[in-house]
Computed example of a mutant assay.
Amino acid sequence: MNQVGMKKIFLISEYILPTQNTTGYLFHKLHKNLKQQYGDNLKVLVKEDPIHKIEDAILVADVNLNKKKLTQRLFFELVISLKFLIKILKHVGKGDVVFTGTTPIFLLPIVYVAKKIKKFNWILLVHDVFPENLIAANVLKSNNPFYKILKFLFDRFYAEADKRIVIGQDMKELIDDKVGKSDSIIIQNWIDHHDIEIQEKNNILNELGWQSEQPIFYFFGNIGRVQGIHNIIQALKILPVGQRPKVLFIGSGAYEHELKDQINRLNDKNVQYIGSLDPSKKSDGLNAGDIAIVTLAEGMYGLGVPSKAYYSMAADKPLLAIMEEKSEIVSMVEKHTIGWSVSAGDPQALADLFLEICQNFNTKELSSSRKVLIENYSEQIAMKKIVNVIEEVRLSK
């Protein structure tokens, strides 16, 4: 690509390292591919990591606060976003292309303000929809005046982007309605299947004494407020001891203490929680069972698409999708026959499905989820689409 006189492209993210979290993994892959495409014209503006050094980037100093506590998280979001604003105003020029995600939350108003001042072009990759996700997380009520103010403002922030990339059809419907335009571009999350190993029964199951058991359901990922973990526990409570399936929880998050308490109350060896794993052991966690539970709380339609689904597909695991009908993951599971689905917020239906799966697991004919991932949701497919969006914006003005 001829780079003479070419405007710069800024990749702006809170996370950029694959070991940080899913956002870090996705933006790391994005950076790697865009660097090959744009060379020195690609610039990275990212929050520093307290452990790992980030090379060849414009760094934003971190803020050391406990983000599991809502008040400290709010202060963190405000301060870190202001630091991003200073860096953006200093480095981004008129006509440049800015590519961001949706974290930190207040990055959106910061980019909105900076865009008005510097006149750059903005591509927004939407992973979370704010403040609507506060309703699903039971942080605010929809009739709360503060929520209404936030929604009024953030609708305009989202609408300011020149292009909006969403990660599912359900999210497209929500975002298009939010901004009053029908132009959101669907590009599903991407996973490099080479990063995930396929293992036989592993050490995690050996330590639990489950190496010969089948089927084993597992939840691996963020144990947060919108994951719908409570619904799973309620379904297990409905089933009598002796009929409950083996369910393993792996991960950490705001709901983990409640999860521990609920599992202790169940007092059933079939339901276990082992905490989080080091990121280097991701493949171990993704192979610690036969069926991957992918869940979102009731009311999360269009507000997010769990990336853990694609990771589990890379490990060639069928999915149990617990979320609202016609959600992106439910549609994918049904279209490609790679698992089961049940509505969120219906523990009785989930309990019944647990029993049905256990009875018919060895006779159920399913497609290879890893093959489906490679053919439909690969890194190469997503990157080609993203570069097309960047080029369209870069050449339009």
Rank of each mutant, 00 (worst) to 15 (best):
E356N: 13
N206H: 12
Y311L: 15
L259C: 04
V63F: 12
G285R: 08
E365W: 00
L208Y: 04
Y273V: 07
D96S: 03
S312M: 07
I263N: 09
K119C: 04
F157G: 01
I357T: 00
Y25N: 10
K119V: 02
A159K: 12
K141Y: 09
I175T: 05
L303M: 06
K90L: 15
N66K: 15
T295Q: 07
W210S: 08
K7I: 04
Y38K: 01
G209S: 04
L74A: 12
L350M: 08
L366Q: 07
E200F: 06
I86E: 08
K53T: 15
S182D: 14
K35Q: 13
V79C: 04
R156F: 06
E207Q: 14
Q72M: 15
L17K: 09
V333L: 03
K385M: 03
H230C: 05
V4C: 13
L350N: 07
I185R: 09
K326F: 06
D352M: 11
A161Y: 06
N264E: 11
T337V: 02
E200W: 04
S81D: 11
G39R: 08
L266A: 05
Q169E: 15
Y158S: 10
L236D: 02
I185V: 15
A61N: 14
H127T: 12
E328T: 13
P104M: 06
F99R: 06
E160H: 09
Q227H: 10
A321R: 01
H28F: 11
L319W: 01
T22E: 12
Q20I: 07
V393A: 11
Q272D: 08
D56T: 00
F219Q: 02
C358E: 15
L45C: 08
I238K: 11
F146N: 03
M6E: 14
G39Y: 06
F219C: 03
N206P: 00
G345M: 07
N144T: 08
E48Q: 15
K335Q: 12
V389S: 03
V92N: 06
E379Q: 02
A57N: 14
F120W: 14
K119T: 01
L107H: 00
K115P: 05
N33S: 04
